[in-house]
Design a binder for these strands. Structure first.
Lengths: 132, 132
DNA sequence: TAGTTAGATGATAATAATTTTCTTTTAAGT
DNA sequence: ACTTAAAAGAAAATTATTATCATCTAACTA
């Protein structure tokens, strides 16, 4: 994945810290602020938490990344992809993407409600097969 | 709505503060901590924010109430009802219930994923007809 | 390729959000 | 009424997030 291009397309300067953040986010799939901070410190031992927050906010504003807010648990961040849903195991805490047609759901709801939809968040929580 | 019964069924003591919180939550439909605190102080001028948090947490634990976490905005709380979805207008901030069959969605996902589902959160954000 | 500049970083302080602690009070069962 | 476990309220403590500011660097230009 070309993170430099991704930043450039979003009018964000390319910095080693940002590349590191995106790399970690990509590897983890879905990562919380604290996990991200713990990991990024291995590469940039003096990185500031403020820098992390500022970058997360900058990338959220341009929609380069997305915030996933599931009930009960801390927010996690992912690189924006085609719309999809999430599955969370409340035992092991793992997040998974699921290819569920959220766009279709959004259209249905738009039609009946008269709203102009620009985001659909579908998060299903339960126990994964391993944890049952 | 019988809040005393609701509390009793959840093994929570009936206190005037709790009745007030439930009343306000019911009237507002979906309410944030700060809104709730501002409103409840009109009835109980010396209520502590700690009391509010403790009660919210106690009621969440028994599932008497539910936390609705939408992207971009603060969490809101509602009295638990039959499963439904939410529509949020990011202009006026209003939350609305929508009668979308989230249980059916959960079943579909359970079947293909092998997860045991116990919660489904579907939140659609956009612009409401008034705000367009 | 050096010079310029807007924007990024990191340190720290400030603010906001939430939880803990502890003493006093009260709900609810004897 | 008496007892007791739990709740309320005040305050402090903790955690999360944002703001400030001096220094540094990415990226553009001559």
């Amino acid at each position: 994945m070309n993170y430099e291009l991704l930043l450039k397309q979003n009018n964000l300067k390319i910095t080693p810290q940002r590349l590191g953040i995106l790399q970690l986010m990509h590897e983890a799939g879905h990562i919380s602020i604290e996990e991200l901070f713990a990991s990024i410190k291995k590469q940039f031992s003096s990185i500031s938490l403020a820098t992390l927050y500022k970058n997360i906010n900058a990338m959220l504003e341009t929609s380069l990344i997305k915030e996933v807010k599931a009930p009960e648990v801390k927010a996690r961040y992912e690189i924006s992809k085609t719309p999809h849903a999430h599955l969370v195991c409340h035992v092991c805490g793992e997040f998974k993407d699921i290819h569920f047609d959220v766009v279709h759901v959004a259209h249905t709801i738009a039609d009946t409600s008269g709203y102009t939809i620009n985001d659909t968040s579908l998060i299903v929580s339960g126990t994964c097969p391993k944890c049952q």
